[in-house]
Design a protein around this nucleic acid. Structure first.
Lengths: 150, 150
DNA sequence: GTCTACGGTCTCCAATATAGACCAGGTCTC
DNA sequence: GAGACCTGGTCTATATTGGAGACCGTAGAC
């Protein structure tokens, strides 16, 4: 699985690019602008949604404020919005306990857990390779600055 | 900032954050607002960057215009910006052939290939589960509309 | 009475995404 | 020779989005 980029008839790719008629039997193709799967992908592929999934996968059910504290820098607005989004797509469950003060707990549904298991390695990889990427940035910026200076 | 969390230890609300292994030695934690790995993560975790990585992994080296055609709906500006970003972080290589008309080819570097191998399953999963998520959305919206109508 | 905690929503403003025009500069057509 | 066209961008104007912080309603602590 390491060097399998020469797969036969990739979905919506290469010579087989026609949108809607890709290799996927359902015709779903994230590369196609009008594909429903693209819309879903576009909503999931943002940092806050991914961090929420990772946080819930790592720590189990959490309250709104726990998530907010755990995910540094997220605003209430974006947290609410991303959570609603994930809830709407059936990835997580929102449970309200009508206590005082109110308590709302978010937990992954099976679908969300599946996704979280794909996303978590992404976060790990980022942490693991951050040094390398930062170094590359330094070189790139230096080369660029030198280029500009000459 | 205005809202100083004044957290006792750190943002991590559960003791067993997944960053406890390996990466924690460097203090890298995508959940932390000020961590360098978060900055990197935030740049990678957007739909265009992920689609670019998937496209390059699936089809091999591609020209600018090939990428643009392959990734439906991406604007030249965002494509340029995302490619620069990935290039800057050492994930892909930009090669200019000073021909006429000019030819610019983008290809994954080893680091980018690593990431692409984590990202590609994400795209596949989205295509595979899109139906389920769309159904969940339908239910959610219906329930919400009913709620509002009453 | 005032303050805090909770889980939001609302408003305002800055930042960002998108669409589309424009550019260099070489080829091709007429 | 004039003009259209190709590529890989950049620039601009407008639409969308993100973030900061105010507000809400209930209840308990001070």
């Amino acid at each position: 699985m390491t060097t399998e980029e020469a797969a036969p008839a990739r979905a919506g790719q290469c010579e087989d690019r026609p949108t809607g008629g890709g290799a996927a039997e359902q015709g779903y193709d994230v590369f196609a602008q009008v594909c429903p799967s693209r819309a879903v992908f576009a909503e999931l592929a943002d940092k806050w949604s991914l961090l929420i999934l990772m946080s819930l996968a790592a720590c189990g059910p959490q309250r709104f404020s726990e998530l907010q504290r755990g995910i540094g820098g997220v605003s209430r607005k974006m947290l609410t919005q991303s959570l609603r989004n994930l809830e709407r797509s059936g990835l997580l469950l929102r449970t309200v306990y009508p206590e005082t003060p109110p308590r709302v707990v978010y937990d992954l549904l099976p679908l969300g857990r599946e996704l979280a298991e794909l996303v978590t390695p992404l976060g790990r990889w980022t942490e693991h390779r951050a040094d390398r990427m930062l170094a590359a940035r330094g070189e790139f910026d230096a080369a660029h600055a030198a280029h500009a200076g000459e």
